Amino acid sequence: MTRQARKRHHRGYTHIQKKYRTRRKTKDHDQIHEDMKPETAEKMLHQEVDLDKPGCAQHYCLHCARYFIDQNALKEHFRTKLHKRRLKALEMEPYTQKEADAAAGMGSYHAPKKKKVTTQPLEEEKKMDEKDD
């Protein structure tokens, strides 16, 4: 019996290990920023019924680009560390070509701005707000 060679990539960095060992490819931050624009966000949150996706594509987290089986699973996801970490990462503006040119010496550098990102409101919360008004 021979000894098995151990892989030594990213030892000690659990989130990086999981990223490279799973096949789930998630959207990048700049793609999610495009989805967060109001006209696109409305389409993503109110998709047509698709039986191939979890929950028939009716329960979607815009910031994490994930589908959930039901409303309760989506609510639970909003409280997880992964969702909060994604919100924190989305606060920074995406990297642009203008910023790359400035870093290369073709312009003056301006630090990227932060913007406030909050969890998307649920449908039942919107209905409750409308009843109160």
Results as ranks from 00 to 15, higher is better:
residue 1 M to S: 13
residue 2 T to E: 15
residue 3 R to M: 07
residue 5 A to H: 13
residue 7 K to Q: 14
residue 14 T to L: 09
residue 17 Q to A: 09
residue 21 R to S: 12
residue 22 T to N: 13
residue 25 K to E: 05
residue 30 D to N: 09
residue 31 Q to E: 14
residue 31 Q to A: 05
residue 32 I to D: 00
residue 32 I to V: 10
residue 33 H to E: 06
residue 33 H to T: 03
residue 34 E to L: 12
residue 35 D to H: 01
residue 37 K to M: 10
residue 37 K to H: 02
residue 39 E to Y: 12
residue 40 T to A: 14
residue 41 A to G: 05
residue 45 L to F: 04
residue 46 H to T: 04
residue 48 E to D: 13
residue 48 E to H: 09
residue 48 E to T: 04
residue 51 L to D: 14
residue 52 D to W: 08
residue 54 P to G: 03
residue 57 A to Y: 04
residue 59 H to E: 00
residue 60 Y to Q: 00
residue 61 C to R: 00
residue 61 C to I: 01
residue 63 H to A: 00
residue 66 R to Q: 08
residue 67 Y to G: 01
residue 72 N to P: 03
residue 73 A to Y: 07
residue 74 L to R: 02
residue 75 K to L: 12
residue 76 E to Q: 11
residue 77 H to G: 00
residue 77 H to Y: 07
residue 77 H to D: 04
residue 78 F to G: 06
residue 80 T to A: 09
residue 82 L to R: 11
residue 83 H to D: 07
residue 84 K to L: 08
residue 86 R to E: 07
residue 87 L to H: 00
residue 88 K to H: 11
residue 88 K to V: 02
residue 90 L to Y: 03
residue 90 L to M: 02
residue 92 M to K: 15
residue 92 M to S: 11
residue 94 P to K: 12
residue 95 Y to H: 06
residue 96 T to S: 13
residue 97 Q to A: 08
residue 97 Q to H: 15
residue 102 A to S: 08
residue 104 A to K: 15
residue 104 A to L: 15
residue 105 G to T: 13
residue 108 S to H: 13
residue 108 S to L: 08
residue 112 P to I: 04
residue 117 V to H: 11
residue 121 P to W: 02
residue 123 E to L: 09
residue 126 K to F: 12
residue 127 K to M: 02
residue 129 D to M: 12
residue 130 E to M: 12
residue 132 D to A: 12
